[in-house]
């Protein structure tokens, strides 16, 4: 589903965030991406939805070469990915359900079908009872669950998350990871960037380990 081949990323200014990274993730896999802060996890995360482009090498997502994608094709690529950001990126000027409806609005669903899917997604993360609330009224863990609901409302085949448990207590973090695992169990490919080793050990997925921009464990050599 996701394949990195000899991917390097150098930001303007000379800093090399990723160096010659190669790995492949198959359909339905649960993979953790770990490493210290600054090891390149966020950069790798951003290459998949074409928020950043690799300096060299290729990134293939769902059979599509994302590293050479045309700007006009980017929205379609992103709709087929579920993205969960470290800072959630919720909109605080609208209710929980309206946040979840946002990606459905531009995917061409009729309003009724969109509302149905948004409720189903909120139900999966256990927040259906809070659909009318403003995200600001929710706890950090609940906000992260809203972000997950928004990511999966389109029913993407791939779900990727960047430090989804970064600012959460241990219980909330475990609940979040459990939600991701439940999606993997119904066939979704899940990639989670995190530095929380305790969580990873309990969940038992494959682990990719980045150190200073290089993949040191978990990658399969090409």
């Amino acid at each position: 589903m996701i394949k990195f081949s000899n991917v390097s990323k150098r930001y303007p200014g000379g800093q090399e965030a990723l160096r010659n990274v190669s790995f492949a993730i198959g359909a339905g896999e649960l993979v953790f991406l770990t490493g210290r802060s600054g090891a390149g996890k966020s950069t790798l995360f951003k290459l998949i939805p074409a928020i950043e482009r690799p300096t060299s090498g290729s990134v293939v997502v769902n059979g599509q070469n994302v590293s050479a994608i045309k700007p006009a094709a980017v929205p379609i690529l992103r709709r087929n990915l579920g993205l969960v950001f470290q800072d959630q990126k919720l909109l605080y000027d609208r209710s929980v359900i309206d946040n979840v409806l946002l990606p459905l609005a531009f995917s061409g669903f009729a309003p009724k079908e969109a509302a149905r899917r948004a409720r189903a997604a909120l139900d999966k993360v256990g927040l259906l009872s809070r659909e009318k609330a403003n995200p600001i009224q929710l706890s950090g863990g609940e906000q992260q669950r809203v972000a997950i609901a928004r990511a999966v409302a389109n029913r993407p085949a791939i779900l990727i998350a960047d430090e989804p448990t970064a600012n959460l207590d241990a219980d909330s973090a475990a609940a979040i990871i459990a939600i991701f695992v439940s999606f993997q169990q119904v066939g979704v490919t899940v990639l989670i960037a995190t530095h929380d080793m305790a969580l990873i050990e309990r969940s038992g997925g494959r682990v990719l380990r980045l150190e200073a921009g290089e993949l040191v464990a978990g990658g399969d050599p090409q």
Partner: peptide, 16 residues
């Protein structure tokens, strides 16, 4: 600004 950035990240087209 914020809404536009989030919408773009989630796959909104320029037209939308």
């Amino acid at each position: 600004r914020e809404e536009i950035e989030v919408a773009r990240l989630l796959g909104a087209t320029d037209g939308f």
